[in-house]
C-alpha cells in the first residue's frame, strides 16, 4: 500500500512538472521568440488567411502548378492528415497512378515526373521536386499566355536548395510558387 500511496504523490507532482509546467514553458518561449512559426506560418493576403507556408493545397486549374496526390478527404484536408498506406503491389495504387497520369496528360503535361503520380505521407506535402515543377512549366505558361522562360525563372527563384547543401532534398513550395505566379502577372 505504501508503494501505491507514494506512487500517487510522485505521479501528481511529475504530472504538474511535465504535463503543465513543461508545455506552458515551451509555449511561452515559442510564442515570444518564434511567434509566426509557433502559430502555423500562416500566409495572409489582403487580411485573409489563405493557408500556411508549410501545408500543401489542392490545385487543379491549368494556370496553377499542381501538387502531389493527397490521401486525405477531401484532398489536402489540413484538419485530418493521412497517407494512402497502399502497398507496393496494390491494385488500387496502380489505378491511382494511372488515373493521375491520364489527368496530367489531359491538362497538357506531356511527361509528368513520377513524383506527381505518388501520394505523400502526410497528404499535406507542401513541396514538389524541381523536376516535377519543370515538367509543368509549359502547360502553365500556355494557360497564362506567358513565355515558358518566365515560368522557368519563377521555378528557379522558388527552388529551395538542400539545407546546408546536403540535408534533405531540393524542393519547390507549390503554394508559394503559385502565389508568385499570380503576383508576377498582377504587377
Amino acid at each position: 500500500m505504501k508503494e501505491l500511496f507514494d506512487s500517487l504523490k510522485i505521479f501528481l507532482i511529475l504530472t504538474l512538472i511535465t504535463g503543465i509546467a513543461y508545455p506552458l514553458l515551451v509555449t511561452g518561449l515559442a510564442q515570444a521568440f518564434f511567434n509566426d512559426k509557433a502559430n502555423g506560418s500562416l500566409v495572409i493576403q489582403k487580411g485573409k488567411i489563405i493557408g500556411s507556408k508549410l501545408l500543401g493545397q489542392n490545385f487543379s486549374a491549368p494556370k496553377y502548378f499542381t501538387a502531389r496526390q493527397s490521401a486525405t478527404t477531401p484532398a489536402y484536408n489540413a484538419a485530418a492528415s493521412s497517407g494512402s498506406n497502399l502497398g507496393p503491389l496494390s491494385e488500387k495504387l496502380k489505378v491511382n497512378i494511372e488515373q493521375k497520369y491520364q489527368d496530367l496528360k489531359r491538362s497538357g503535361i506531356q511527361n509528368p515526373d513520377s513524383l506527381l503520380l505518388t501520394t505523400s505521407a502526410s497528404g499535406l506535402d507542401p513541396d514538389i521536386s524541381p523536376a516535377a515543377a519543370k515538367c509543368q512549366a509549359e502547360s502553365v505558361a500556355n494557360a497564362r499566355h506567358i513565355p515558358v522562360q518566365t515560368v522557368l525563372d519563377l521555378i528557379a527563384r522558388n527552388t529551395k536548395p538542400r539545407q546546408f547543401g546536403f540535408l534533405g532534398e531540393e524542393v519547390v513550395n507549390v503554394l508559394l510558387l503559385n502565389l508568385d505566379l499570380d503576383q508576377s502577372q498582377n504587377r
Binding site: V26, T27, A30, Q31, F33, F34, K37, A38, N39, G40, S41, L42, K48, I49, I50, G51, S52, K53, L54, Q57, N58, F59, Y64, Y76, A79, L175, N178, L179, D182
Partner: peptide, 18 residues
C-alpha cells in the same frame, strides 16, 4: 519551433485556399 513546428492553444484556423 524555430524550424516551423507549431506550439499554441489556438482553435483550428479557418482559411480560404488559393
Amino acid at each position: 519551433v524555430w524550424q516551423g513546428a507549431i506550439q499554441n492553444f489556438n482553435a483550428y484556423v479557418e482559411y480560404t485556399p488559393l
